[in-house]
Structure formats: C-alpha cells, structure tokens
Design a protein around this nucleic acid. Structure first.
Lengths: 213, 213
DNA sequence: CCGCATCCCATGTGATACTG
DNA sequence: CAGTATCACATGGGATGCGG
C-alpha cells in the first residue's frame, strides 16, 4: 500500500504517514481501551466501511502498531508497545477536540470507547488523590461502564456492578466535564439522570474529571 | 467543503474532522514556528499542490485555527489562540514519529520549520537549566537556524549570528538526538560537521536535546 | 512574481453485495 | 463472523493559467 509520503525527514510527517489516514487513529483509540475483535471494532466505528477497516488493520499491522493475536479460538487485534505509545497523541487530540465539541447532533453517537478515552483525558490525578475512592457507573445507551477512581489511579471497564453512583452518560456529561453545566443544574434539567446513589457525588465526579475550554 | 464527519460525539473525532485532512497538521506545524506568507508555506511543504494549500488554508481559517493577517502591505497566515493550542498535539506526534524515522531517503528534505519543531520536541528543560546559556547555529541547506538555550527556555530563530557552536544539521543530527550516535562518532564519521566553535559543545547539545527510541 | 483558481487524471473512500 | 469484491464518487496530485 505504501502510504503516500510527504517527502520530508521529520517526525511529524512520519507519524502522519503511519497513522494519518482516515479512521486510523480512531482504530487506535478503540484499541487503547483494550484488545478488540473485528466485529467489535466495526461496532465501535459505526460509519466505517468494512473494506476500509480491513485495509487499515492491515496497514497498521504492517507499520508495527497493532497485531493480530489468537485468543482462545478467535482472533483479536491489540496494540503493540509501539502502538500503545500513541496514547499521548490520542489524549492530546481528544483534549483539543473536546473544546470544539458543539451541541451534539442527532446522528452522532457516543460509544463506550469514546467515553472511556474522554474520561482518561479529563482525569485529574492530582485532585483524585485527595478524594476517597469512588466507583461510578455510567450508562451509555445499552452499555454500562464502571469507572473506579482510587487515589491517583483511574480504571474504566465495561459492565455494571455495585458502585457509589450510577448515572446516564449522554452529551450532558460532557457539559459537566467542561464546566459549562453545574452538576445540580444538569440533574435539574435532565441533562444527566442519576440512576442510583446520592446525587451529591456528582460534584465529586465533576471535580475529578474536568477539561476546561 | 464540510469535512466529512465521523458521526461520533467525541473529542478525538472532532479534532480529526478539523485537522485530520492531509497536509493540515503540517501547515499548523509550520505556523507554530511563526506567521508565514502563502509562498513561504508552499516552500516549506515542497510537495503540496497549490490548490490543496489554498483549500486547507480556507478550511483551517473557517475552523478558527488560523487567520489571514495583513502585515505591512502583504498578507500572512498566523495561528489563532485556538490553533496554537494544537502545539501539544503536534509535539506528541513528532515525538512518536521521531522513533519511526528510518534512514533518510534521497528525496526527503529537511526544512527549517521541521527542525525547529524537532528541537522543541526533544528539548529537555530540566537538563538545560543546569547548563550555562548556550547559542548554537544549525545550517540547514541554504538556511541557518540560531538555537538559544538559556536556563529552561529554548528559542529557535532563523538566521545566523554569533554563537558558541555552529554545525551542519542533516540527518546525522537526528541520530545524535536519538542517542544512536555519540557526538564524537558523528563528527568522526562526518555525519555532523562542526563549522565553528569547540566540538566538545556538541556533547552539551546532545544532553540538552534528547529523544530516545 | 505572488497568490491563488482551473482542469484532468490517479488514487482513496464509501456503500453495498457477496463469500469462506 | 470476518472479511473480500465491485463500482460510483470524492479527494488528492500535478500541470497550467491568470489576475493584481
């Protein structure tokens, strides 16, 4: 395939030659959350044509960014150490793009992987270390996400479980993270719905995860 | 034009919709060094078709990333504050891609803007603050770059001047920054040529600018 | 000459259908 | 489920033109 090159001897051009093609960094984003099967990747990128997904996976494998790994009868795609080093790039892009997120449009979906990376981007360890360990559950459509904050560490995993606070994670959550909406107003206006636990914990969430414009 | 969108409510997708098109981040890279005229941008991106450059400039202006500014009879393009916030993204990409830079091919050029961003990426303020202020001059083909390190600050500007050490900046410089080549071996093999000043200062340069694989 | 705009063709992308 | 094949179309690349 040989990605068209930019003809410059420069780290940025090299990076863009390797992961600058359309959809490539979104595949990396989803794999930063964990290994995924082909169908899981396709589900997390609803608009990607299957031929493009297949092509990108081959290119990224060729570049040493991901590999196909056999896992108990099925194949999963997982990042190599080199690919995992793209995390700062993805987080930096996410932090910058977050500020340019306007009102969500109807056609836009919110995937668990996207929310996971948003939380990683907005996580403030320095603040979290001063707070008691807390577990949140975020409901993303049909999926659940368990968010555990303990000391300065963050762990986001799929599924449900016993948590201190459960809430819905729609676009309203982004407005809390950006500080555009206070937690109480978010609850009052229905932007965020508390499903379980004391709503006051939403304040703690808002101070733990913050990304200002 | 309306960049094709990814259909997700996510900072990363938003960022890629704004600066994910081919050449866009390279234009940003060059403008991070300073305002540029149309022709200067074209010169710094030798392979960009002129229509693509014109299109990107319009899109990036539309997105609020750069603006056309009149400067004494001519128009220059310069980043807006929002566009300047892309610096962490560009530096992260550069740091990652730097590790994947293989041997330079003949067709690959090294532009002053690219070298400037490489130096910014590789700069280690914590090390620099322990060293005496030093001025280097790097010769990039027909262009000169003056690199001033003072305390924890770095300033890279075009031109020549009185410096402590002057040397040629070819691909050999990258191998010094990566630690792949020791300064003495670089000089011995001719990978880097000292034009002026004590060659021993190249060691200081190597500790000030470092980006390991 | 600089700053683009136009034209044409090669390539990449997207939607859909199809196969092991 | 995990891709491959096909085709229409959008975008990128290169040459060229043109007005200020």
């Amino acid at each position: 395939m040989a990605a068209r090159d930019y003809g410059q001897y420069c780290g940025i051009t090299r990076a863009l030659e390797l992961v600058g093609e359309r959809w490539a960094l979104l595949i990396v984003r989803d794999l930063l959350v964990g290994p995924r099967r082909y169908g899981e990747l396709a589900a997390g990128l609803p608009r990607i044509p299957t031929n493009i997904l297949a092509t990108r996976l081959k290119e990224l494998q060729e570049a040493g960014i991901l590999r196909r790994a056999p896992r108990s009868r099925v194949v999963v795609y997982e990042l190599t150490p080199f690919g995992r080093e793209l995390e700062p790039v993805v987080l930096a892009l996410g932090a910058w793009g977050f500020k340019a997120l306007g009102e969500p449009r109807d056609e836009q979906v919110l995937t668990p992987a996207a929310l996971t990376m948003t939380l990683r981007t907005a996580f403030r360890p320095a603040v979290a270390v001063t707070l008691p360990p807390t577990a949140y559950a975020a409901r993303v459509g049909a999926d659940g996400l368990v968010v555990r904050v303990d000391g300065g560490t963050l762990d986001v995993a799929p599924g449900d479980g016993t948590v201190d606070l459960a809430f819905t994670a729609g676009p309203g959550l982004h407005r809390i993270i950006s500080g555009e909406l206070s937690p109480d107003r978010a609850v009052a206006t229905g932007a965020v719905e508390v499903l379980h636990g004391p709503g006051s914990l939403l304040d703690r969430f808002a101070t733990t995860f913050h990304l200002a414009a």
